[in-house]
């Protein structure tokens, strides 16, 4: 299956680009309209984090989907989707630093060293930075084989992000469990392929 050019580059990809921004528009609008409930800031932080995780899982499903459908064009969406992971993670972290911690760096430091779910969340973000930075064509060319190796980091990051969500929950872990199951599926597909060869 293949979508004819220029439709893919001129319509499909830009549409996905805009759709991926819709959650931000919704949350900004929600802040002012009251639809986010009594604690809108908590909702904004949670939702931004959850969207980062969702885009991460979507990004990880690109290769298996390509194998499943044979649609090579999908790979051309992967960088954009991966950068959206970084985009949402950055917003999530920024709002935490600003509205949760008021940029109180000592408190932020304590949070990072004392609370495992913050530690692992921060670690995930730090590991995302080299991936985002090396997403340019030039970097891919320059790093060659090492680029692939570096971007294997996405797998531990994905596990850390799910744990980050899981450890935050008090007792009802259904939601992070769903993400954990999807991730398990995506990771085991890769493991099986690797060892079946």
């Amino acid at each position: 299956m293949k979508i004819a050019e220029p439709y893919f580059s001129k319509i499909i990809k830009p549409s996905i680009f805009i759709m991926a921004l819709l959650p931000v528009f919704y949350l900004v609008w929600g802040m002012f309209s009251g639809v986010l409930g009594a604690n809108p800031i908590e909702t904004v932080i949670r939702d931004l984090g959850e969207w980062a995780l969702r885009f991460l899982l979507i990004t990880l499903s690109i290769s298996p989907l390509r194998r499943l459908t044979g649609m090579a064009q999908l790979l051309r969406l992967r960088r954009m989707l991966g950068l959206y992971v970084f985009f949402y993670a950055s917003l999530h972290l920024s709002i935490y630093l600003w509205l949760e911690q008021s940029f109180d760096w000592w408190e932020i430091w304590l949070d990072i060293v004392e609370r495992p779910f913050i530690t692992i969340g921060m670690l995930s973000f730090i590991l995302l930075i080299p991936l985002a930075v090396t997403s340019t064509r030039a970097a891919i060319r320059k790093l060659g084989k090492n680029w692939l190796r570096l971007h294997q980091l996405v797998y531990p990051i994905a596990i850390f992000v799910v744990l980050h969500f899981w450890w935050l929950i008090k007792v009802d872990t259904r939601e992070p469990l769903i993400y954990a199951l999807i991730l398990t599926l995506l990771l085991s597909e890769r493991l099986i392929r690797r060892y079946a060869r």
């Binding site: 009594a38 604690n39 800031i41 908590e42 509205l99 008021s102 408190e107 304590l110 949070d111 609370r115 495992p116 779910f117 450890w167 935050l168």
Partner: peptide, 14 residues
């Protein structure tokens, strides 16, 4: 799992 030093009063920004 979290600090108790501060709180968000519902309706407040900070």
């Amino acid at each position: 799992r979290w600090s108790q030093k501060r709180e968000r009063r519902i309706g407040d920004f900070f």
